[in-house]
Computed example of a mutant assay.
Amino acid sequence: MLARIMGLMGRHPANAEPPPVVAVAKPIGSPGASKSLTETIEFFTPRLGLDVSAYIEAEQKQGIHHVGRYQWAVPVLAKRKPSRIVDLACGAGYGSYMLAQAMPESEVIGVDYDSRAVEYAKDNYKAPNLSYSVGNVVTWQSEDNPLPVCDAITSFDTIEHLLHRELALMRMADNLTDNGCLLLSTPCGHDVSKLNPGWEHHKLEFSHTDLYSFVSRFFERVIAPDDPRYENLEFWKGVVNRDKQRYLNKMNPLICEAPIRIKQRNGGEI
């Protein structure tokens, strides 16, 4: 099964080239992200294709992390047969494309605040069941409409960029179906949370214990790699980290199930 999926991931659109650094029209507001489109383009493009093996051979850490997470996610989600998947902070679109190719019966929606990333994704990673939208995870709003309710969400290395990450997790939980799941990663290898990380684009980097505590406020089941219920652990142990550690599976990535939703109150006036 793993070998078949890795073969599928090796397919790569021939026209996918690194994006030019250009400024285009501003997207919808991005509260919580505090980003400007005059900044250098931030999204990753997979120059060695969509199979993590190429990045392992080249010892290219960025590719191992970015491509590897989606490659791990494919069998985790495929067994659930989700009708709709929302890929938050989809960037160049390669991960959304990997999900769409592996699950042709599922609708996949790639969402990013950066209109340049969305345009690049639309041009380079296309599938009949795949669409892209400029959107905001904190407000759960796209350019014209709210983002949809879905059966699965992927959010890989997103929340560390947000000022209002608690609102983002609340929106994710509120917009998943009862049996839906969130696959989440964020830097959390620290023993103590870093409130002022060294990289300017990160607002916060959790400790592994704080991350578990935080996410558990929004999901009843938070399944980490050291949990016997964790799925597709063999990908990390037998492929990525087979001869040395290339990806730190310390509370990363998480499988989050049973979203906690609070019934909304109307009014409140006395």
Rank of each mutant, 00 (worst) to 15 (best):
T177W: 01
E107G: 10
T38G: 09
D191P: 03
S96P: 03
P27D: 12
S142Q: 11
K126I: 15
D243H: 13
I153F: 13
K203R: 15
R11D: 14
A54Y: 02
L130F: 12
S36V: 09
R229K: 09
L2P: 04
G7M: 11
E231S: 10
S216Q: 00
G29D: 14
G68A: 09
L248G: 01
R11Y: 11
V52G: 02
Y70G: 04
V192K: 13
Y94R: 01
F219P: 00
S53R: 15
Q71V: 05
A173Y: 04
V192R: 12
N196D: 12
P228V: 07
I5N: 06
I153R: 04
K263L: 05
V111E: 08
R116L: 10
S115A: 15
P225R: 06
S53K: 11
L183V: 05
T154V: 10
K79C: 05
D51Q: 06
D226N: 13
T158W: 06
L162A: 08
R69N: 10
R80C: 04
E269P: 02
L167M: 11
F43S: 05
A92I: 01
V67Q: 02
K26T: 15
G189A: 03
S34W: 11
T139R: 13
H66F: 04
L163Y: 08
E107Q: 15
S30Y: 08
L248C: 05
Y55K: 00
L163E: 15
P146W: 08
R246G: 03
